[in-house]
Simulated assay, not measured.
Amino acid sequence: MRYFVELSYNGGRYCGWQRQREAASVQATLEAALSTLLREPVEVTGAGRTDTGVHAAYSVAHFDTAVPLTDPRQTAYKLNCLLPDDIAVFGVTPVAADAHARFSAVEREYCYFIETRKNPFTRRAAWQYRRPLDAERMDRAAALLTQYSDFTSFAKLNSNNKTNICRIVRAGWEESPEGVYRFTIRADRFLRNMVRALVGTLVDVGRGRYDEEEFRAIVESRDLSRASGSAPAEGLYLWDVAYPAEVFRRGERTQNLLFY
């Protein structure tokens, strides 16, 4: 029987989602808890492979069991008791045998947070960039991304991508009254390190290093050396994963736990 797990995690102490031989990962931690609870070896497959230090406000993974769960809601409760405090499970839901957390997803959304003041409570939850930024300039430049599909300029080298083509359906910046900048980007797929490379380059737009047309030229160049340095991992969150309605519907009790 196959189940989808809806979860969130703080990636600060993990090497990323993917299981590593000598470092703690979210995948391995979740597998260990499930294996202990269900008393059988369990492997999980995630909707995406977040990098070291990257968080997930909402993510999905799937696992299979030899025997159907008698009470998935109780399984979610017990799973939360076994997991460390930096991983939270929203729900466990039975799905079709061919439903796949990664390949069945049709869109994913990431958010990136930048705080412009020194804040001891968010230093590992946002990029504390204490220089003035022009949110309107960054927003106009980000809007250009929906006009393109090849993002080689923001693709990490030697990442073995079969293609650098992505369909971005939304990209934009907003600024809160408290001075927190939030970048939201939604697409059918993302390249490794793509969002952090985009944020780093867009911040250079916001501080006046590039104008909108220079940013456009960077996108069109398909040259990674033209992009700015990547933004730090701690500001990045996997924010949403969407599936066709016939595959899976997001649970009602999955509000993002962030205070932003």
Rank of each mutant, 00 (worst) to 15 (best):
F215G: 01
N10C: 15
T29P: 12
S230Y: 04
C111A: 14
L258H: 06
A76C: 01
E246L: 14
R49C: 14
E220H: 05
D98A: 06
I185L: 02
L157I: 03
V199Y: 01
Y237Q: 06
V169A: 03
E31L: 10
F151K: 10
P232G: 02
L145A: 02
R102I: 10
M1A: 10
A143W: 00
T45H: 02
D85W: 14
E22T: 13
F154Q: 02
Q18L: 10
A88I: 01
E213G: 05
I185Y: 02
D223F: 12
E109V: 06
I168V: 12
W239H: 13
W239A: 08
A233C: 07
L236Y: 13
P120R: 05
T184A: 12
D188Y: 15
N119R: 12
T201M: 03
S225E: 13
F190I: 07
V199G: 04
E175I: 03
N158P: 01
V67C: 14
E252D: 06
P68L: 05
R249L: 11
T65N: 07
P84M: 04
N119M: 08
Y9V: 09
E174H: 08
E214T: 03
E107C: 09
A142L: 14
A57M: 10
L38Q: 10
D51K: 14
S228M: 12
A135R: 04
G53C: 06
E6Q: 10
V26N: 14
E213H: 09
S225G: 03
V169D: 04
D204Q: 05
F183N: 13
W17Q: 07
A23P: 04
S35A: 09
A97Q: 15
P244C: 03
Y14L: 03
R39A: 13
A66G: 14
E213F: 07
V89H: 00
D134A: 00
S25C: 13
G200E: 02
S176N: 09
V89K: 00
D223Y: 05
G229R: 14
S59Q: 07
C166T: 04
C166R: 06
S25Y: 08
F215K: 01
G179W: 02
R39P: 12
T29V: 15
P120E: 07
G179C: 01
R108G: 12
P41Y: 15
F63M: 11
T146Y: 03
T184Q: 15
S59L: 05
F103P: 02
T36L: 08
